[in-house]
Design a protein around this nucleic acid. Structure first.
Lengths: 202, 202
DNA sequence: CCTCGGGCTGAACATCTGTTCAGCCCTGAA
DNA sequence: TTCAGGGCTGAACAGATGTTCAGCCCGAGG
């Protein structure tokens, strides 16, 4: 899923339509993006969009299939290659890298996670499962503090990690800089690690 | 803003339209809610909706005005009545109470916080300001641990507090129970306090 | 009594939406 | 050369949507 294709001419019309749809869905939302707008952005007739994807829903499905596949790939790679002692660091690094370089992806994810769309649910469930898995790995390595009710731990982690994505516009307004600039990400990571390590209260 | 009016007949048609619009906007989103649907739900002709509010945008504005006013009222009351030592407890208690008893409000908020709509931005900014103010109060009471970079503290708090609201469907799916049931809220509050007090790591 | 005005309606309008369809062009196989 | 097939298009259609408008009903004020 290339958010901003380098050279459209290299892509088949089908791929161009999918990519443009992805960007426009992210920017305006699916319902608010007419097939005609996608066709226009891809330099193609509206009829061709339907010709390739059957219906607008079919196009949405195709877009989300690619999205899901790409993300799954990323996360499985973390799980395969990261050892327990660096798991947390590697995971947050990869997340930052994937999200930081791709504003359109962030916007699309934001919509997906909050809308009741089934793909959004799949995605959140996936993220939650990965978080649980990561916590498990760290727990077995003895890195976690024992708590009375461990139910909420993965949620707490997920909230802190996903917060900057879900409320990106807030960050942008108040920080005045790009919320996913590498330096900002680094500072936030340090603060989060401190938070996870010691909490906030005296 | 009464999410589910007790007895519609008691309300003027204008108020009934506003309330129904609020519920339908929350459920389906603003763009996906036709004026005709609102009119139907309120037992009124579509033309009356426009007669009272000028346009659909006018209706949206009216709905959001009431929403913002109600929430502001709640939070100002906390600030007026809570002393520093109980501020955190009182705030989370009130938030839980307001949100817990009002599923439609939660849904509407979720949409507002995420959409680029100006009211959504105002609302998030307001929530952030309240969080900052609460942290300030607790800091002056000496309840906070000193950290290297305090920039991120209010965000971290906001993420953890707003998480269950933003990702309510995830909670619902995995917990199997109402995510804002009083018992669940209580358990979550305890876990959050522990998190804020000591962090997660060993 | 009349009439004025606001709540309220049905019907209509222009526009936008997803989708269909007959048919164009062009490449590659027979 | 013929011809089949897939990429592709313009025009059109049916339905939905926001909005307008002429006019209804009915209670308050003269």
């Amino acid at each position: 899923m290339t958010a901003v294709p380098a050279r459209d001419a290299d892509l088949t019309a089908r791929a161009r339509i999918r990519d443009r749809a992805f960007a426009l869905f992210a920017e305006r939302g699916i319902a608010a993006t007419p097939v005609r707008a996608i066709a226009g952005a891809a330099g193609v007739s509206p009829a061709l969009v339907l010709h390739h994807f059957g219906s607008k829903d079919g196009l949405v499905q195709a877009v989300e299939d690619v999205l899901l596949e790409t993300l799954t790939e990323q996360f499985e790679q973390i799980e395969r290659t990261a050892t327990p002692d660096v798991f947390s660091a590697r995971a947050s690094e990869t997340i930052a890298e994937v999200l930081g370089s791709n504003p359109v992806l962030r916007q699309y994810l934001r919509r997906s996670l909050l809308e009741e769309h089934p793909t959004g649910a799949t995605l959140v469930d996936q993220l939650f499962a990965w978080t649980e898995r990561g916590i498990d790995i760290m727990g077995q390595a003895g890195a976690l503090r024992a708590v009375a009710d461990p139910t909420w731990r993965p949620y707490q982690v997920l909230y802190v990690v996903l917060g900057p994505l879900l409320l990106e516009t807030l960050l942008e307004r108040h920080l005045g800089t790009d919320a996913f600039d590498p330096d900002v990400i680094a500072a936030r990571s340090r603060a989060n690690h401190d938070f996870f390590a010691h909490g906030l209260l005296a």
